[in-house]
Design a protein around this nucleic acid. Structure first.
Lengths: 162, 162
DNA sequence: AGCAGTTGGTTCACATGTCAACCAGATCGG
DNA sequence: CCGATCTGGTTGACATGTGAACCAACTGCT
């Protein structure tokens, strides 16, 4: 087995900086959001998608597609949000097994209040620290990597592959 | 209350690309690592730090500082890793309450086997997709944001290293 | 129509992370 | 020394994420 190409200085630095930034950013945003609105980032994303959807409602699987969540995760999370009165589940007319998820009035109020704060936090901690060129580069990087990941993940995972 | 500055096109794009990349990358690496070595990324990081430490051992709080994990998380995780025979806990001589965490032979073998694979995955999905300039920019971004986060966080963050 | 296979969702068991409370051993001020 | 306080670490209750099993409704094919 050949010795792999380890990461050199520059590569290490970029990789670690990214990971560290990510952890810090996620933790920061999660904490602020929860403190000020009682929402987790997961709640926030669900409500954001619902509030942008026509009539504030989406089929469960559509929501799952947008969020890229596992279906069991979505189901569990919606159950909790329903208990808290943030969303409601309705039966679908055209497909008898389907669930239509609707944002409630309370959910709507909460995300309306949370959104400006959250946006300000994202700006403050992230966007406003960077130049336009950096933002461009970042977007390009993100797209490249996502494309690559899509290519590497062909629906089923190659268990042996080596 | 004044209307906040929402994110413009460019900003949205960069932010979403970053978040999407992050999710995809984390999930990809987690899956590969677990499939091929039975380790989670959390396990991997613990073992990586231990294997680089003198004599393969660290005080629990030192390890926590390096990982930036909450102490209860570390304690819980080490408990599980101990059960699986990846690390062992010893009493500290100089401080009677202290725990010294040591990597076991089995833990050593596992990370030795996992490291090249993991590095290859990081390269394949991420590093090798980017130009040197992009890596530089990314490192700069990461540093800036981390610095900003440190300034925004009321608590003191025990900067490990330096 | 009828039956196989797919799809949308839920549920269970379990892995992992967080918070607060707790305990025991250090430390410090008299 | 003694007590107050700090520090390192563990624990228990609970929130959240994952995978497999399951159920019921839809689709396709004959």
């Amino acid at each position: 087995m050949t010795e792999p190409r380890w990461l050199d200085e520059r590569e290490q630095r970029a990789w670690r900086a990214l990971m560290a930034m990510q952890d810090g950013l996620a933790e920061f945003l999660e904490r602020r959001l929860r403190q000020r609105s009682g929402l987790s980032t997961a709640d926030y994303q669900v409500l954001a998608h619902l509030s942008e959807a026509p009539a504030g409602r989406l089929r469960s699987f559509e929501l799952g597609g947008l969020l890229r969540w596992e279906k069991s995760r979505l189901s569990q999370h919606l159950g909790r949000m329903e208990t808290r009165g943030l969303v409601s589940r309705e039966r679908c007319r055209t497909d008898q097994r389907g669930a239509v998820i609707a944002i409630t009035a309370r959910g709507g109020e909460l995300i309306e209040a949370a959104a400006p704060q959250h946006t300000a936090d994202v700006r403050d901690a992230f966007i406003d620290q960077l130049t336009e060129a950096e933002l461009e580069t970042l977007a390009a990087i993100g797209d490249k990597v996502r494309t690559r990941l899509a290519a590497l993940t062909p629906k089923g995972q190659p268990s042996s592959g080596t």
